[in-house]
């Protein structure tokens, strides 16, 4: 119960740190426009539709570096599947689509650490390693440890799912329950809490800047071309 209590408050603290950090970053995104050369910032549905494959396939990264793109795309896709798969611990009843992706989510859990290893190797050895910043390595290593702990747990020390679900349900209500009786789970959970406040702001900002870049490219065609002149 003591461990459960500590973990619950640690989770609340980590989530609060993450949420406050993101809010502090997001606040200036809503500032008044009207600075020189600012492009129109409203949503344009055609541009939104055009941005969807750009964002989902990380096309800009593909154009810049297809070798690193392979690792990054596989990592982001597998992370998404793993997160969706983990929703079964947070939701009750569990929606059918989450049950439906359990198998593929499980496979993604094995692929994720491999993709992270690939990224680390490419960045460190082949890809101008001197320009990779320490923070990036910290995040990559953090995700690698979390995913490796997840793989070990799933493969060798499968914990009691019901215990996990009870613990998570209690933590979400800030009502302490006993932590699952599984050291791999506790390690996995603690590692997630450690990296949560350090998650990069690009997870929210990048889709929006990719959308804006697509819109800007389109506007460039009209800037001094076409029927707007003479």
């Amino acid at each position: 119960m003591v461990v459960g209590n500590i973990l619950m408050w640690a989770a609340a603290l980590a989530f609060a740190a993450f949420a406050v950090k993101m809010l502090m970053h997001i606040a200036p995104w809503f500032r008044r426009s009207g600075r020189p050369g600012e492009t129109h910032q409203g949503l344009r549905w055609r541009a939104v539709i055009a941005a969807v494959p750009e964002i989902l396939l990380l096309r800009r990264l593909f154009r810049a570096n297809p070798v690193i793109w392979l690792g990054e795309w596989v990592f982001h896709a597998s992370l998404l599947l793993v997160i969706i798969r983990h929703l079964k611990y947070f939701l009750s009843p569990v929606p059918p689509f989450i049950w439906a992706i359990q198998r593929i989510g499980g496979i993604a859990g094995y692929i994720m650490p491999l993709s992270l290893l690939y990224i680390i190797i490419v960045k460190a050895i082949f890809n101008r390693g001197r320009y990779v910043f320490a923070y990036n390595y910290f995040l990559l290593a953090g995700f690698l440890l979390v995913s490796a702990a997840g793989v070990i747990m799933r493969t060798f020390f499968y914990p009691d799912t019901m215990q996990i679900k009870d613990f998570i349900a209690g933590a979400l209500r800030l009502h302490a329950t006993a932590a699952p009786d599984s050291l791999p789970f506790i390690s996995h959970f603690c590692l997630v809490l450690i990296i949560l406040p350090f998650l990069p702001t690009h997870i929210f900002a990048a889709p929006l800047t990719i959308y804006q870049a697509g819109k800007r490219d389109k506007e460039l065609e009209d800037l001094i071309h076409g029927g707007k002149q003479e």
Binding site: R32, R35, Q41, H202, T209
Partner: peptide
């Protein structure tokens, strides 16, 4: 900086592809 430029600072993944 404009709102978009604040967003851009947050969006940089430090990937170094620009270099």
């Amino acid at each position: 900086l404009s709102a978009l430029q604040h967003m851009e600072l947050d969006a940089c993944t430090q990937c170094g592809e620009c270099l």
